Structure formats: structure tokens, C-alpha cells
Simulated scan of single mutants.
Amino acid sequence: MINERFECEILRASRIRLFQLMETSNYEILFKIPAGFNNNIIWQIGHCITSQQRHMYMRSGLPMYISNEFMESFKIGSSPASWKITPDVNEVKHLLIDTVNRLELDLEAGLFVNYTPFELPIGFQVRNHVQALQAANYHEAEHSGVIFTYLKLLFNN
């Protein structure tokens, strides 16, 4: 049996690490796009938040804790080139932690009852909110790897 609390602890640990990275990085680094790439660190982080909200909440028929504007800025296929406004770093930092807090409360309240399954790009079908949480942790690990690669590239230039 999958332990939802443990999955949330993994998500929180990942988010705290990203929050700390944001706290210790300057604005320029967060928004700079490394050569050969089309996104930056802030997009990677906002994308993690957006994907988790879409996969957990939207697919469960529940309202997300992000705005439509935030979702549009960070959904798959978007990039800084498509931004209508520059994202607010403080909003991204707030949502990193707040969305985990709310997720824990919503899981405890049993809000996740219905779910519309979907297939991940890696060919795996997500059938319920617990699998969506597991997939979010995998997804965030992938993007965290990209973020730390960006940091190496940006600091070596």
C-alpha cells in the first residue's frame, strides 16, 4: 500500500531544496537561459508546481491553487519566450511550499474522490490521485536535475 504521507514528505523535501536554491540565487541566474536551452530555472520550478496542480487537482475535478495565468506561463510547451508578463519570484517561492501544505490538508480531508486518467509522455498511465502524486515526485526529480545542470552551465560561463 502506498503511503500518501511519505509521498508528501518527498515532495516537501524536493520543494524545500528548490526554495533554498531560489533564496540563495540572484534574480539574473533564475531568469537566464543557458545556451542551447529554451527555458530557465524559474520556468523549471514553476512548471513543477503547475504540473503537480494539474495532475492532482484538475484531473480530480478540484480547483487548483494556482491562477490560470500562472498555469499558462508554466504548462508544458510554454517557455519564457511565450510569457506575457515576467513571473513574480516571490509568488513562485510561496507556491512551492503552500501547494504542498494545501495538498496535505486536502489528502487528510479526503477530497480526492474522482480522477480522470491520462498518459504520461513516458508511456505510463496515471489512474488516480496517488499515482499522480508519485508521478509528480518523479517529474520534479527530473526537473531538479535539469535545474542543477543549468546552474553548472551558468556558473561555468
Results as ranks from 00 to 15, higher is better:
I45F: 02
H55I: 03
E142F: 03
H139S: 04
A132E: 03
H129Y: 15
Y138E: 05
D98N: 05
M71A: 07
F70A: 00
G123D: 00
I76N: 14
A136G: 11
F112A: 01
A81Q: 04
Y115R: 05
M64V: 09
Q52K: 02
Y138W: 07
N90L: 15
S79W: 03
I49A: 02
F112N: 03
R102V: 13
F148M: 05
I97C: 14
V100P: 12
R54T: 08
Q125K: 07
E142Y: 02
P121F: 13
P80H: 02
V146G: 13
L151M: 07
Y138K: 06
I66F: 14
L95G: 08
R59C: 03
Q53K: 10
S67I: 09
S60F: 01
E108L: 09
K75D: 04
F70H: 04
V146E: 05
L120Q: 07
A81E: 05
E72K: 11
N68I: 10
R59K: 11
L103R: 04
N101Y: 08
L151T: 06
V89W: 00
Q52T: 14
K75P: 10
S144W: 06
S67D: 07
Y57T: 06
I85A: 14
C48L: 09
M56K: 01
L111H: 08
P63C: 15
T116V: 12
T86W: 05
S78L: 09
Q53N: 02
I85S: 15
L107R: 13
I122T: 14
Y57R: 15
L96E: 15
K75H: 11
I45D: 07
E69R: 14
L133F: 12
H55W: 15
K93D: 02
Y115I: 13
Y138I: 06
F148I: 12
N68F: 13
E91L: 13
Q53P: 08
A109S: 12
F148R: 14
K93Q: 06
N68W: 08
N114K: 12
L120G: 04
L120E: 10
S79L: 13
Q52V: 06
L96P: 05
E69W: 12
G77M: 10
P63I: 13
N114T: 15
F74M: 00
H94Y: 13
L107A: 13
Y65I: 02
T50C: 07
L120N: 00
V126F: 00
